[in-house]
Design a protein around this nucleic acid. Structure first.
Length: 206
DNA sequence: ATATCGATTATCT
DNA sequence: GATAATCGATATG
């Protein structure tokens, strides 16, 4: 449990440019409700994907069955399968009819750490093993049991949803902006946002 | 410490 | 038939 009660984010939070939303999401929490238990992770790394003009975005080639959620109302989950192995979670941005999203790349485990570690198949022997739970887009979806069948198109801002985004009052001190990871097109755009110094950011750290 | 590579499948050319 | 918003294992310095 957490000291301050987490407040569910509103649809209007996501009815903005993905770059604004991606920054604003740092420090917020992702919650998976499992009966009376819950998994919680703090968002420490995001990337913005825009509409037309962003060659790296799935929206760039137009609307298809796979990416239709991107054109839907803001605050909904866009989940896709990648590299034959992994799911990635995004949240739709901008008003209904406009495409754009934020990719979640890493979470700091908060609640349900044992359950998440089990879902990932990792044993927590020491402090650094915690990073294996949800530091990476494919890792965090596995920890949360996020799949396309289960979660694609689902609202992340409904009190009835089992997957939610909320604000628990945490304040981000400093944020860094870098290039996005793992893409070949539009690879130099500064659209990745991380909480400075947070050890759960994906990749190698100094 | 960094580098390379195989896994495995939905989607698009 | 090629590619992909990745991960984990293995090899090498």
């Amino acid at each position: 449990m957490n000291g301050s009660p987490a407040k569910l984010l509103q649809p209007a939070f996501f009815d903005r440019d993905p770059r604004v939303v991606a920054r604003a999401l740092l420090g917020k929490v992702l919650i998976r409700k499992l009966g009376r238990r819950r998994l919680t992770g703090r968002i420490v790394e995001t990337e913005a994907y825009l509409g037309s003009g962003d060659a790296a975005a799935h929206a760039t080639a137009g609307k298809t069955a796979r990416n239709a959620v991107l054109w839907g109302p803001p605050g909904h989950a866009y989940v896709y399968f990648i590299y034959g192995n992994h799911y990635c979670l995004n949240v739709s941005c901008l008003p209904d009819g406009e495409a754009g999203c934020v990719l979640f790349r890493a979470l700091e485990p908060v609640d349900g750490i044992e359950a998440m570690a089990a879902a990932r198949g990792v044993k927590i022997r020491n402090d650094s093993d915690l990073k294996k739970i949800s530091s990476g887009p494919g890792r965090m979806t596995e920890a949360f049991g996020i799949t396309r069948d289960r979660d694609n198109g689902k609202s992340l801002v409904s009190s009835k949803s089992d997957l939610q985004l909320a604000d628990d009052g945490y304040r981000v001190r400093k944020m860094l902006v870098t290039k996005r990871v793992g893409i070949t097109k539009s690879a130099d755009e500064p659209l990745r946002y991380v909480i400075a110094g947070n050890r759960f950011v994906s990749g190698v750290r100094p």
